[in-house]
């Protein structure tokens, strides 16, 4: 297993978001994390990605324990190995789309020219070369999400974390983004943790995990 969570618990104040959630994901696998809202699926994603530390339990990425790493080490891991796609893209509004895609590379210390060349390739793979020079405020929601996907994959990330990537899109655009996203992830061999509450989006994954009451259930095992 490439990335696994073992018995994670996490609470925010008096709210118990995770209570003993376990799951794992193999290299190149696309896993949908489903569950009712408030079930803790985003918290699980954030723990897996090393953005927040669980109160108890372990997150293991390629035999390294994330929760034992310093903030700096986890940040470095996120810069180099992980990618992210959020519901509203969360693109940096003042940068052009190309610069947004190049951003993770630049955060990782790549030179600007090199970063932008690779970013341009990704825009091409996601069929949005025409938005390269535009600012995020000037492109459609679907285009923006495709920029976000390109941004997540540009570093050659081994795991991409996607939190409701189509949540703000209509079904046609959502499907298109999902198709391009999963194709691109499979081509580059990235594993994807896909948090969604939409079954049709989850259907793009290889399997699903249901988070209920802070616990993760791997339903495929029961069947």
């Amino acid at each position: 297993m490439m990335l696994s969570a073992v018995e994670l618990t996490k609470s925010f104040g008096s709210t118990q978001a995770l209570s003993g959630a376990s799951m794992s994901i193999a290299a190149g696998e696309i896993v949908a994390v489903m569950g009712p809202s408030g079930s803790g699926k985003s918290t699980l994603l954030h723990c897996l990605a090393g953005i927040i530390r669980p109160d108890a339990g372990q997150v293991l990425y390629r035999d390294q324990e994330l929760s034992a790493m310093s903030d700096g080490q986890r940040s470095a891991l996120r810069r180099g190995e992980f990618g992210f796609v959020f519901q509203f893209g969360q693109l940096v509004p003042e940068l052009t789309c190309l610069e947004n895609v190049a951003l993770p590379l630049r955060l990782d210390g790549h030179r600007r020219k090199d970063a932008q060349r690779r970013a341009a390739e990704w825009l091409d793979r996601l069929e949005i070369t025409d938005v390269a020079g535009k600012r995020p405020g000037e492109v459609s929601g679907g285009q923006g999400q495709r920029v976000a996907v390109a941004r997540a994959l540009v570093t050659g990330a081994r795991v991409v974390f996607a939190d409701e990537p189509t949540g703000a899109l209509d079904s046609l655009n959502g499907e298109r983004v999902m198709r391009l996203f999963t194709d691109a992830a499979r081509t580059s061999g990235a594993a994807v943790v896909l948090v969604t509450h939409e079954a049709r989006v989850a259907a793009y994954a290889d399997r699903e995990i249901v988070v209920r009451d802070g616990k993760a259930l791997d339903l495929a095992r029961h069947a």
Partner: peptide
Amino acid sequence: ERRRTLAALVAFGARRST
């Protein structure tokens, strides 16, 4: 106004110093 963008940058591993 930019809290979401900032949070996304954190996810991408942006350094505070940057």
